[in-house]
Structures are given as structure tokens and as C-alpha cells.
């Protein structure tokens, strides 16, 4: 099969492109104009990650508490003296330890389920957004957009939303649990261990949230990309 040749005799080359900066610009505008819909999508991720973060933070606090109890026990073993408060701390810790461990595992599972549910939610919301925009997508294709451009636009849009929502979700979950612990146990639990773990969890939340939104967008983006250009011609629905 010979190369397709245009009228002027030059071979048609593949030169269609969409620079990344331009794609980001378009995606951000899409988010802005559909602000409330975007916020609802984001809220799903935000809540899921907030729950996840709160469960993980609780575990961090339990661990910190356990370390404190172990220290006191060690003091006791060395023959040191403990205050009445410390005795209460040790006793309640012993009573709670088993219960907390069991509840902790259950919560971990719940938080995983919550994240899965929010992933499905994002897929649903993005699919609706594809349906809403079929004309826009068709038009872009008529103007020469490749399937890849559409995929790019959808991924940038959802990953941006996913990242922002995850970080915010972490802040919400973190703040709630930290305030509760602050009220219950006082400032003693907020040691360097706490801050280290918080930072780590923040990164974790951002990565998990973004990756999940990315996964959730694969199918909708594929659907959008496969939309035929002739969709642009269809009358209003």
C-alpha cells in the first residue's frame, strides 16, 4: 500500500499534537466551569481519604500510647516510682489493648472498603461527565484531536482533582482524630513520632487518592476517547 499523498504531492505526516501545558490549561478550565460537579466528585475522594487517614491516625496514637505505657512499665521494673495517674494509664491500657487491636483490624478493612466505594463513585461521576460532554468531545475530534488528547484531558482533570481532594481529606481526618486525642490524652502524645507518622501518612494519602482516581478514570477516559467525531453533529439531547 502506498503512502497517502496530498494534492501538493507531499506525504501526509502525523503532526497533530497537544502540548502538556495547553492540556493542563483546558483541564483546569473544565473543572472551573463545572465547579460544583467537580466538587462532588472531589468530595467522594475527600471523604474516603479522610476516613482512611483517621483510621491510620488512630493506629498511630495507639502505638504512641503503647510506647508510653511500655516506658512506664520499664520504669516500674527498674524499681522506679510511678504516680497514681501512671498506674491508671497502665491499667486502662492493659484492659484496652486487646479490644483496640481487634477494632483496629476491622477499621482497616472498613477504610479499604470505603476507598473502593469511592473509586466506584468517581468512575460513575466521570462516566456521567463523559455523557454530558459528548458533543464537546466530538467537536474536538472534528477539529483534529486524537484519541490520546481526550484521554490526556480526562486524566489530567481527574488526577488534579484526586490529588487536591486527597490532601484535603487527609487534613480533615488528621485534624479530627488529633483534636479528639488532644482532648483525651493531652499534649504528651504529640511527640516527634507523631509528626513523623503524620507526614508519612499525608504522602501516603495523596498517593493512594491520586492512584485510585487515576484507576477510576481509565474506563471513562477510554469511553470518551472512542466517541466518534460524528457525535458532534447530533442534535441536542
Amino acid at each position: 500500500m502506498s503512502e497517502p499523498v496530498s494534492a501538493s504531492g507531499t506525504v501526509i505526516r502525523r503532526q497533530i499534537k497537544l502540548p502538556f501545558t495547553k492540556a493542563v490549561e483546558i483541564s483546569l478550565k473544565s473543572i472551573r466551569i463545572r465547579f460544583w460537579r467537580s466538587m462532588i466528585t472531589a468530595a467522594g475522594i475527600l471523604l474516603g481519604i479522610a476516613f482512611f487517614a483517621s483510621v491510620r491516625m488512630s493506629a498511630v496514637f495507639s502505638h504512641a500510647q503503647q510506647t508510653r505505657v511500655d516506658e512506664k512499665r520499664a520504669t516500674l521494673a527498674r524499681g522506679g516510682k510511678l504516680s497514681a495517674e501512671d498506674v491508671i494509664l497502665i491499667n486502662s491500657a492493659a484492659a484496652n489493648a486487646k479490644e483496640e487491636a481487634a477494632a483496629g483490624t476491622r477499621l482497616q478493612w472498613l477504610s479499604i472498603m470505603a476507598l473502593l466505594v469511592c473509586t466506584v463513585g468517581i468512575t460513575n461521576s466521570m462516566l456521567m461527565s463523559v455523557t454530558e460532554r459528548f458533543k464537546e468531545i466530538g467537536t474536538m475530534k472534528c477539529l483534529g484531536a486524537l484519541d490520546g488528547f481526550i484521554v490526556k484531558l480526562f486524566f489530567i482533570e481527574s488526577c488534579f482533582l484526586g490529588f487536591i481532594a486527597s490532601v484535603l481529606g487527609f487534613v480533615v481526618g488528621w485534624l479530627v482524630i488529633s483534636l479528639i486525642r488532644l482532648a483525651m490524652d493531652g499534649v504528651e502524645v504529640f511527640g516527634p513520632y507523631f509528626w513523623m507518622q503524620s507526614l508519612r501518612l499525608c504522602g501516603q494519602s495523596a498517593v493512594i487518592g491520586t492512584v485510585l482516581t487515576f484507576l477510576a478514570t481509565i474506563f471513562p477516559a477510554y469511553r470518551a476517547a472512542k466517541m466518534p467525531p460524528v457525535a458532534a453533529l447530533r442534535a441536542e439531547v
Partner: peptide, 28 residues
């Protein structure tokens, strides 16, 4: 004879489309 890329190229450079419903991108 054209593949997807070449068709896109053709739509971009050789053909201009005008629609009944205008079809401007609303965000732009």
C-alpha cells in the same frame, strides 16, 4: 486508506466543520 492519525490530520488541516448547534467549547 487513512489510519486514525492521518484522518485526524486531515480533519485538522484540510476540512473545517461548521455545525447546526455551533458547538463551541463552552469553557473557552
Amino acid at each position: 486508506q487513512l489510519d486514525a492519525q492521518e484522518l485526524a490530520y486531515l480533519r485538522c488541516h484540510t476540512i473545517g466543520y461548521i455545525f447546526q448547534t455551533f458547538n463551541l467549547i463552552p469553557v473557552m
